[in-house]
Design a protein around this nucleic acid. Structure first.
Length: 274
DNA sequence: AGTGCGACCCGAACGC
DNA sequence: TGCGTTCGGGTCGCAC
Protein backbone atom coordinates (compact mmCIF):
# COMPACT_ATOMS: atom_id res chain seq x y z
CA UNK A 1 0.00 0.00 0.00
CA UNK A 2 1.99 2.91 -1.24
CA UNK A 3 1.60 5.96 0.95
CA UNK A 4 3.41 9.25 0.62
CA UNK A 5 6.83 7.84 1.60
CA UNK A 6 6.62 5.10 -1.02
CA UNK A 7 5.22 7.39 -3.71
CA UNK A 8 7.96 9.94 -3.05
CA UNK A 9 10.54 7.18 -3.44
CA UNK A 10 8.98 6.10 -6.74
CA UNK A 11 8.97 9.70 -8.01
CA UNK A 12 12.61 10.13 -7.06
CA UNK A 13 13.67 6.90 -8.76
CA UNK A 14 11.68 7.66 -11.92
CA UNK A 15 13.24 11.12 -12.04
CA UNK A 16 16.66 9.54 -12.08
CA UNK A 17 15.75 7.00 -14.73
CA UNK A 18 13.28 8.33 -17.28
CA UNK A 19 13.34 12.11 -17.27
CA UNK A 20 14.15 13.49 -20.71
CA UNK A 21 13.00 10.36 -22.49
CA UNK A 22 10.43 10.46 -25.26
CA UNK A 23 7.29 8.33 -25.28
CA UNK A 24 6.84 6.89 -28.76
CA UNK A 25 3.72 4.86 -28.05
CA UNK A 26 1.48 3.34 -25.40
CA UNK A 27 0.01 -0.14 -25.09
CA UNK A 28 -3.12 -0.30 -22.96
CA UNK A 29 -3.89 -3.85 -21.91
CA UNK A 30 -6.58 -3.00 -19.37
CA UNK A 31 -8.33 0.23 -20.19
CA UNK A 32 -10.23 0.69 -16.92
CA UNK A 33 -6.98 1.91 -15.37
CA UNK A 34 -7.33 4.97 -17.60
CA UNK A 35 -9.91 7.52 -16.46
CA UNK A 36 -11.58 8.90 -19.54
CA UNK A 37 -11.07 7.84 -23.13
CA UNK A 38 -8.12 5.52 -23.71
CA UNK A 39 -7.64 6.70 -27.32
CA UNK A 40 -7.44 10.32 -26.15
CA UNK A 41 -4.90 9.29 -23.50
CA UNK A 42 -2.80 7.59 -26.17
CA UNK A 43 -2.96 10.55 -28.54
CA UNK A 44 -1.94 13.07 -25.90
CA UNK A 45 0.93 11.02 -24.54
CA UNK A 46 2.46 9.89 -27.82
CA UNK A 47 5.57 11.75 -28.99
CA UNK A 48 5.90 13.75 -25.75
CA UNK A 49 9.02 13.96 -23.60
CA UNK A 50 8.81 13.22 -19.88
CA UNK A 51 10.08 16.44 -18.33
CA UNK A 52 9.80 15.60 -14.64
CA UNK A 53 8.16 13.21 -12.20
CA UNK A 54 6.78 14.62 -8.96
CA UNK A 55 4.41 13.55 -6.25
CA UNK A 56 1.67 15.35 -4.39
CA UNK A 57 0.53 13.16 -1.54
CA UNK A 58 -0.08 9.74 -3.05
CA UNK A 59 -0.39 11.10 -6.60
CA UNK A 60 2.38 10.94 -9.17
CA UNK A 61 2.59 13.67 -11.80
CA UNK A 62 4.51 12.95 -15.01
CA UNK A 63 4.97 16.34 -16.64
CA UNK A 64 4.82 16.32 -20.44
CA UNK A 65 4.81 20.11 -20.73
CA UNK A 66 1.35 21.33 -21.69
CA UNK A 67 -0.12 18.09 -20.36
CA UNK A 68 0.53 16.01 -17.26
CA UNK A 69 -0.14 12.34 -16.60
CA UNK A 70 -1.70 11.91 -13.15
CA UNK A 71 -1.18 8.43 -11.72
CA UNK A 72 -2.49 7.01 -8.46
CA UNK A 73 -1.07 3.64 -7.39
CA UNK A 74 -3.88 2.91 -4.92
CA UNK A 75 -3.09 -0.44 -3.31
CA UNK A 76 -0.53 -2.25 -5.39
CA UNK A 77 0.41 -0.16 -8.40
CA UNK A 78 4.10 -0.23 -9.35
CA UNK A 79 6.30 0.98 -12.17
CA UNK A 80 9.05 -1.04 -13.78
CA UNK A 81 11.53 -0.16 -16.49
CA UNK A 82 12.22 -3.07 -18.84
CA UNK A 83 13.62 -3.73 -22.28
CA UNK A 84 10.89 -3.76 -24.90
CA UNK A 85 11.89 -7.33 -25.78
CA UNK A 86 11.03 -8.71 -22.34
CA UNK A 87 7.85 -10.76 -22.02
CA UNK A 88 4.84 -8.79 -20.85
CA UNK A 89 3.64 -10.04 -17.48
CA UNK A 90 0.05 -10.78 -16.60
CA UNK A 91 -0.48 -7.63 -14.55
CA UNK A 92 1.40 -5.11 -16.69
CA UNK A 93 -1.63 -3.10 -17.76
CA UNK A 94 -0.20 0.10 -19.23
CA UNK A 95 3.07 0.15 -21.14
CA UNK A 96 4.79 3.34 -22.25
CA UNK A 97 7.28 2.63 -25.04
CA UNK A 98 10.28 4.95 -24.86
CA UNK A 99 12.48 6.05 -27.70
CA UNK A 100 15.59 4.38 -26.27
CA UNK A 101 14.13 0.88 -26.59
CA UNK A 102 12.94 0.56 -23.00
CA UNK A 103 9.42 0.40 -21.61
CA UNK A 104 7.95 2.07 -18.57
CA UNK A 105 5.47 -0.55 -17.41
CA UNK A 106 2.62 0.01 -14.96
CA UNK A 107 1.97 -3.18 -12.99
CA UNK A 108 -1.09 -3.51 -10.76
CA UNK A 109 -2.17 -6.91 -9.46
CA UNK A 110 -5.51 -5.68 -8.24
CA UNK A 111 -6.24 -3.14 -10.97
CA UNK A 112 -7.18 -0.49 -8.40
CA UNK A 113 -4.80 2.19 -9.66
CA UNK A 114 -5.92 4.98 -11.97
CA UNK A 115 -4.26 7.35 -14.43
CA UNK A 116 -5.41 10.18 -16.63
CA UNK A 117 -4.07 13.09 -18.60
CA UNK A 118 -4.91 16.69 -17.77
CA UNK A 119 -3.77 20.11 -18.91
CA UNK A 120 -0.89 20.94 -16.59
CA UNK A 121 -2.32 24.28 -15.53
CA UNK A 122 -5.59 22.58 -14.55
CA UNK A 123 -4.21 19.88 -12.24
CA UNK A 124 -5.03 21.72 -9.06
CA UNK A 125 -8.57 22.38 -10.29
CA UNK A 126 -9.37 18.69 -10.77
CA UNK A 127 -11.76 17.13 -8.26
CA UNK A 128 -9.11 14.56 -7.25
CA UNK A 129 -6.47 17.14 -6.37
CA UNK A 130 -8.40 20.22 -5.31
CA UNK A 131 -9.85 18.59 -2.22
CA UNK A 132 -6.57 17.31 -0.82
CA UNK A 133 -5.32 18.62 2.52
CA UNK A 134 -1.78 19.41 3.67
CA UNK A 135 1.18 17.10 3.15
CA UNK A 136 2.91 15.94 6.36
CA UNK A 137 6.20 17.71 5.66
CA UNK A 138 4.55 21.05 4.89
CA UNK A 139 5.06 23.71 7.57
CA UNK A 140 1.37 24.54 7.30
CA UNK A 141 0.58 21.19 8.91
CA UNK A 142 0.53 22.07 12.59
CA UNK A 143 -1.07 20.70 15.74
CA UNK A 144 -3.47 23.64 15.73
CA UNK A 145 -4.55 22.85 12.15
CA UNK A 146 -5.19 19.18 12.92
CA UNK A 147 -7.00 20.06 16.14
CA UNK A 148 -9.27 22.47 14.26
CA UNK A 149 -10.03 19.86 11.60
CA UNK A 150 -10.99 17.08 14.04
CA UNK A 151 -12.35 18.62 17.22
CA UNK A 152 -15.96 18.86 16.00
CA UNK A 153 -16.07 15.35 14.58
CA UNK A 154 -17.69 12.21 15.95
CA UNK A 155 -15.46 9.96 13.87
CA UNK A 156 -12.60 7.95 15.37
CA UNK A 157 -9.26 9.74 15.03
CA UNK A 158 -7.91 6.86 12.95
CA UNK A 159 -10.52 7.56 10.25
CA UNK A 160 -9.74 11.29 10.41
CA UNK A 161 -5.99 10.69 9.95
CA UNK A 162 -6.84 8.72 6.80
CA UNK A 163 -9.06 11.51 5.44
CA UNK A 164 -6.99 12.87 2.56
CA UNK A 165 -8.76 16.22 2.72
CA UNK A 166 -7.17 16.78 6.14
CA UNK A 167 -3.67 15.29 5.76
CA UNK A 168 -2.62 14.51 2.21
CA UNK A 169 -0.66 11.30 1.83
CA UNK A 170 -1.09 9.47 5.13
CA UNK A 171 -2.25 5.86 4.67
CA UNK A 172 -3.10 2.97 6.91
CA UNK A 173 0.42 1.90 7.87
CA UNK A 174 1.67 5.31 8.94
CA UNK A 175 -1.66 6.27 10.54
CA UNK A 176 -1.21 3.28 12.86
CA UNK A 177 2.37 4.29 13.57
CA UNK A 178 1.48 7.95 14.17
CA UNK A 179 -1.19 7.00 16.72
CA UNK A 180 1.32 4.82 18.56
CA UNK A 181 3.94 7.57 18.53
CA UNK A 182 1.42 10.02 20.00
CA UNK A 183 0.03 7.54 22.54
CA UNK A 184 -3.50 8.00 21.20
CA UNK A 185 -6.02 5.14 21.05
CA UNK A 186 -7.23 4.76 17.44
CA UNK A 187 -10.91 4.78 18.46
CA UNK A 188 -10.66 8.10 20.30
CA UNK A 189 -13.34 10.36 18.83
CA UNK A 190 -12.22 13.52 17.09
CA UNK A 191 -14.04 15.63 19.66
CA UNK A 192 -12.05 14.01 22.49
CA UNK A 193 -8.70 14.84 20.91
CA UNK A 194 -6.83 17.56 22.80
CA UNK A 195 -4.58 20.17 21.26
CA UNK A 196 -1.68 18.37 22.89
CA UNK A 197 -2.71 15.07 21.25
CA UNK A 198 -2.96 16.82 17.89
CA UNK A 199 0.49 18.35 18.31
CA UNK A 200 1.97 14.94 19.15
CA UNK A 201 0.31 13.32 16.14
CA UNK A 202 1.52 16.02 13.75
CA UNK A 203 5.03 15.83 15.14
CA UNK A 204 4.89 12.01 14.90
CA UNK A 205 3.65 12.18 11.30
CA UNK A 206 6.48 14.50 10.28
CA UNK A 207 9.19 12.39 11.93
CA UNK A 208 7.81 9.05 10.74
CA UNK A 209 7.21 10.13 7.15
CA UNK A 210 10.64 11.77 6.94
CA UNK A 211 12.39 8.68 8.28
CA UNK A 212 10.34 6.30 6.12
CA UNK A 213 11.05 8.38 3.02
CA UNK A 214 14.75 8.40 3.84
CA UNK A 215 14.62 4.60 4.14
CA UNK A 216 12.82 4.22 0.81
CA UNK A 217 9.42 3.38 2.29
CA UNK A 218 8.06 0.19 3.76
CA UNK A 219 8.19 -3.21 2.09
CA UNK A 220 5.47 -5.53 3.38
CA UNK A 221 3.49 -8.35 1.84
CA UNK A 222 1.02 -6.28 -0.13
CA UNK A 223 3.53 -3.73 -1.25
CA UNK A 224 6.82 -5.25 -2.29
CA UNK A 225 9.23 -3.70 -4.69
CA UNK A 226 9.07 -1.31 -7.55
CA UNK A 227 11.83 -0.39 -9.96
CA UNK A 228 14.09 -2.70 -8.01
CA UNK A 229 13.87 -0.41 -4.99
CA UNK A 230 13.30 -2.11 -1.66
CA UNK A 231 12.26 0.14 1.21
CA UNK A 232 13.44 -0.86 4.66
CA UNK A 233 11.18 1.02 7.06
CA UNK A 234 9.42 -2.24 7.99
CA UNK A 235 12.16 -2.77 10.59
CA UNK A 236 11.05 0.44 12.32
CA UNK A 237 7.35 -0.40 12.55
CA UNK A 238 6.08 -0.34 16.14
CA UNK A 239 2.56 -1.71 15.64
CA UNK A 240 1.69 -2.30 11.97
CA UNK A 241 1.36 -6.02 11.12
CA UNK A 242 2.49 -6.96 14.66
CA UNK A 243 -0.75 -8.53 15.91
CA UNK A 244 -0.09 -10.62 19.06
CA UNK A 245 3.58 -9.63 19.11
CA UNK A 246 5.10 -7.74 22.05
CA UNK A 247 5.06 -3.94 22.17
CA UNK A 248 8.65 -2.76 21.68
CA UNK A 249 8.13 -0.18 24.45
CA UNK A 250 6.15 -1.89 27.22
CA UNK A 251 6.02 -5.58 26.29
CA UNK A 252 2.21 -5.78 26.13
CA UNK A 253 0.55 -7.74 23.31
CA UNK A 254 -0.18 -5.61 20.25
CA UNK A 255 -3.85 -5.87 19.35
CA UNK A 256 -5.56 -5.81 16.00
CA UNK A 257 -9.04 -4.35 15.64
CA UNK A 258 -11.08 -2.83 12.82
CA UNK A 259 -11.70 0.89 12.79
CA UNK A 260 -13.80 2.30 9.97
CA UNK A 261 -13.47 -1.06 8.23
CA UNK A 262 -9.66 -1.01 8.22
CA UNK A 263 -7.11 -3.14 9.98
CA UNK A 264 -5.84 -1.20 12.98
CA UNK A 265 -2.91 -2.18 15.19
CA UNK A 266 -2.22 -0.62 18.57
CA UNK A 267 -0.74 -1.21 22.02
CA UNK A 268 -3.52 -1.24 24.65
CA UNK A 269 -1.13 -0.03 27.34
CA UNK A 270 0.73 2.71 25.46
CA UNK A 271 -2.44 3.96 23.74
CA UNK A 272 -5.08 4.26 26.44
CA UNK A 273 -8.72 4.82 25.55
CA UNK A 274 -10.19 8.09 26.83
C1' DA B 1 -23.26 17.98 5.41
C1' DG B 2 -21.90 14.08 7.80
C1' DT B 3 -21.57 9.27 8.05
C1' DG B 4 -21.44 4.28 6.78
C1' DC B 5 -20.78 0.76 3.68
C1' DG B 6 -20.46 -1.92 -0.64
C1' DA B 7 -17.86 -2.08 -4.92
C1' DC B 8 -13.77 -2.33 -7.34
C1' DC B 9 -9.97 -6.35 -7.83
C1' DC B 10 -6.92 -10.62 -7.13
C1' DG B 11 -3.89 -13.47 -4.56
C1' DA B 12 -2.49 -14.93 -0.13
C1' DA B 13 -3.86 -16.71 4.03
C1' DC B 14 -6.97 -19.20 6.54
C1' DG B 15 -10.37 -22.91 7.98
C1' DC B 16 -11.95 -27.35 7.62
C1' DT C 1 -3.94 -32.15 -0.07
C1' DG C 2 -7.67 -29.55 -1.72
C1' DC C 3 -11.32 -26.60 -1.84
C1' DG C 4 -14.13 -22.78 -0.35
C1' DT C 5 -14.00 -18.47 2.32
C1' DT C 6 -12.05 -14.35 4.21
C1' DC C 7 -9.01 -10.56 4.20
C1' DG C 8 -6.77 -6.56 2.70
C1' DG C 9 -7.07 -1.44 2.18
C1' DG C 10 -7.35 3.56 -1.12
C1' DT C 11 -10.99 5.74 -2.95
C1' DC C 12 -15.47 6.45 -5.07
C1' DG C 13 -20.35 6.44 -5.19
C1' DC C 14 -24.60 5.70 -3.23
C1' DA C 15 -27.95 5.54 0.61
C1' DC C 16 -29.60 7.47 4.59
Amino acid sequence: MPEIAEVRTVAKTLNERIVGKKIIGVTINYSKIIDGDAKYFEEIVKDKHILSVDNYGKWLFFSLGEYTIMSHLRMEGKYFIKEITEDVEKHEHIIFHLEDGTDLRYHDTRKFGRMRVVKTDEIYKTPEISKLGIEPDNKALTGEYLYNMVHNSNLPIKALLLDQSIINGLGNIYANEVLFAAGVHPETLGNKITLNDAKKMVEGAKVIIAKATEMGGTTIRSYTSSLGVYGSYQSELMVQSRDKEKCKVCGSDIQKIRVGGRGTYFCPKCQKRK
